[in-house]
Design a protein around this nucleic acid. Structure first.
Lengths: 109, 109
DNA sequence: CAGCATCCTAAATGATACTG
DNA sequence: CAGTATCATTTAGGATGCTG
């Protein structure tokens, strides 16, 4: 965005976790290291384009490590860095809020 | 988005707080009720278009109330609902994470 | 398997001008 | 004051096809 993003430290979180998929990917990685196709499988509907794009940004911002194993077939493992793992309380707070929403559908998640 | 958004309850938070301004507006409203121009003043760079759009969506989702006083000049006050106020822990968690980021700029915010 | 290249859509946002 | 209307920009995301 062209926005100056002046307001506060929260902005740092917002630019990184921009877009709905970003948060969901982090949420999956909080469960442990994942390969590319594993992430695709656990995130129904995501396109490889989007997944790659988000993972690259996470790498750049230092919340995810990418480990490529030079094998046949190739194997690439994505894992949260310590900084990335510190995002768990934020995700938990989001989930807690969503669960507390009264009329919005099935809170059974 | 055309996304199915199937994953989890967190998605409810994500669709509502979509875009960088959305979270920042809620953050300001957590400090208390605000008038339209007050919000504009506390959110440098936001356009009235964007502010109106976000506030309308917050109204629709039941996290903000809009109170219009039929006076001259008109006065409209936006205030978080109880559900909206429950977003505070989430915003706090975001801010806490951002403050914990080591190399990202001035953590003095 | 793990992408990348290319084209396209939708939505959030911005700029500017105007109104009840 | 509190918006609305219109136009343009930016970007997340999707679809498809191809490669190392």
């Amino acid at each position: 965005m062209t926005t100056p993003l002046p307001t506060c430290g929260v902005a740092r979180f917002l630019v990184l976790l921009d877009g709905p998929w970003a948060t969901l990917i982090v949420r999956e990685l909080l469960r442990g290291p994942h390969r590319f196709t594993e992430l695709r499988a656990t995130l129904p509907g995501i396109s490889p384009h989007t997944l790659t794009s988000r993972l690259r940004q996470f790498e750049t911002h230092g919340i995810v490590t990418r480990t490529a194993h030079a094998e046949i077939p190739p194997r690439v493992v994505y894992e949260l860095t310590p900084l990335g793992r510190e995002l768990r309380p934020v995700l938990d707070a989001m989930a807690a809020w969503a669960a507390a929403v009264p009329a919005a559908g099935t809170p059974a998640d």
